[in-house]
C-alpha cells in the first residue's frame, strides 16, 4: 500500500513547529528510511501515518484513506507502528498473548491469528520464548516482542522507530532480514534510524531531515554522497563511505561487497 504526505505541517500546542510543509510519496513495497539528529521531526512526521498526530496543514494518505477521517484504532489495520520503547506496550503474562493482542483487536479469526502469531515469533527468533513473561526478557528481546506484535497484525504498511537501538549484531541482522522479507511480501517499510550502516545496507530510499524539513531524498548512494546534507542533518556517513573518503576515493561504497569491488585486483 502506498502512503503520501502532501504539504504536511505540524505545530505542537506549545507552538513548536516540528514538521514544515513536507511532501513525500512512498510507493507500495518500498523500503524507506528517515535519518537526522534527535529533534529533527522524524518521529512527529511518521506518527501522522497512524493518526497519533493529525496535520496542522496538508493531508496524509494511507492508501485511499485520508488519516483525518480515521481513528488510531482504525488506521492500525493498515499501519503497524513499532514504538521505540517496548515497555510502553507489553502487558501480557506471556509473550504469545502479547503478540496475539493486535490480531485479536483487528478481529482476525482464531486460525489466521494463530498462524500470524507463530510466524511473527519465528521471524523474530522468539519461538522458544512464547510462554515466557515479557518482563523476564532482556531489553533487546522485549524490543523484538514489540516488533513481533506488529508483524502479527499483517498490516500493508509497517513503521519502525529506531528498530536497532539496544540490539546486538545478531539482533540487527534479524531485523535486516525482517525488513527484506516484508518487502518480498510487497509491504511498505518506513523506518527511522540512527544506524547509517543498517540504513545504507537495507533500504531503497533515504530521506535526511533537519529542523522539520526534508534536506535530501534519494537512494542511499545519492544521499550519502552529499556532504553538505550529512553535515546539516548531523549524521555520519556509513563506515565504509567514511573509509573511502579517508582513502581519497571519489566514489563512496556503502556495503562490504561494493567496497571490495572497488579495490584494485591483484596484478591489475
Amino acid at each position: 500500500m502506498d502512503v503520501s504526505f502532501s504539504g504536511v505541517g505540524y505545530t505542537y500546542p506549545s507552538g513548536v513547529e516540528a514538521v514544515k510543509g513536507i511532501t513525500l510519496d512512498v510507493p507500495s513495497g518500498q523500503r524507506f528510511a528517515i535519518v537526522g539528529q534527535n529533534g529533527a521531526g522524524k518521529t512527529t512526521l511518521v506518527r501522522h501515518l497512524n493518526g497519533i498526530f493529525q496535520p496542522t496543514v496538508g493531508t496524509v494518505h494511507v492508501g485511499d484513506w485520508a488519516t483525518t477521517g480515521h481513528t488510531i484504532a482504525e488506521l492500525s489495520a493498515r499501519v503497524g507502528y513499532v514504538f521505540q520503547n517496548p515497555d510502553e506496550q507489553l502487558f501480557a503474562r506471556k509473550v504469545i498473548d502479547d503478540v496475539a493482542f493486535g490480531p485479536k483487536n483487528l478481529g482476525f479469526d482464531d486460525e489466521r491469528a494463530a498462524a500470524l502469531v507463530a510466524a511473527a515469533l519465528e521471524q523474530t527468533g522468539l519461538s522458544a520464548e512464547a510462554e515466557s513473561h515479557p518482563h523476564h526478557l532482556s531489553l533487546s528481546e522485549r524490543k523484538r516482542v514489540a516488533l513481533a506484535a506488529v508483524l502479527a497484525m499483517d498490516t500493508p504498511v509497517v513503521v519502525l522507530d529506531e528498530p536497532t537501538t539496544g540490539q546486538d549484531e545478531h539482533g540487527v541482522r534479524m531485523i535486516a532480514s525482517i525488513v527484506a522479507s516484508l518487502q518480498e511480501q510487497g509491504r511498505t517499510v518506513i523506518a527511522i534510524t540512527h544506524d547509517m550502516d543498517f540504513c545504507a545496507e537495507n533500504f531503497d530510499r533515504v530521506v535526511a531531515m533537519a529542523h522539520g524539513e526534508v534536506l535530501a531524498d534519494g537512494t542511499p548512494t545519492e544521499v550519502f554522497a552529499k556532504d553538505d546534507v550529512l553535515t546539516e542533518a548531523r549524521v555520519e556517513a556509513p563506515q565504509l563511505a567514511r573509509l573511502a573518503d579517508a582513502l581519497h576515493w571519489d566514489r563512496r561504497p556503502l556495503t562490504v561487497d561494493a567496497f571490495v569491488e572497488q579495490l584494485p585486483r591483484s596484478g591489475a
Partner: peptide, 14 residues
C-alpha cells in the same frame, strides 16, 4: 554473537 565493524568485515573479505 558480538559481530564486527564493516572495516573488519571489508578487510577480511579483501
Amino acid at each position: 554473537g558480538i559481530g564486527s565493524t564493516r572495516f573488519t568485515a571489508a578487510a577480511s573479505e579483501a
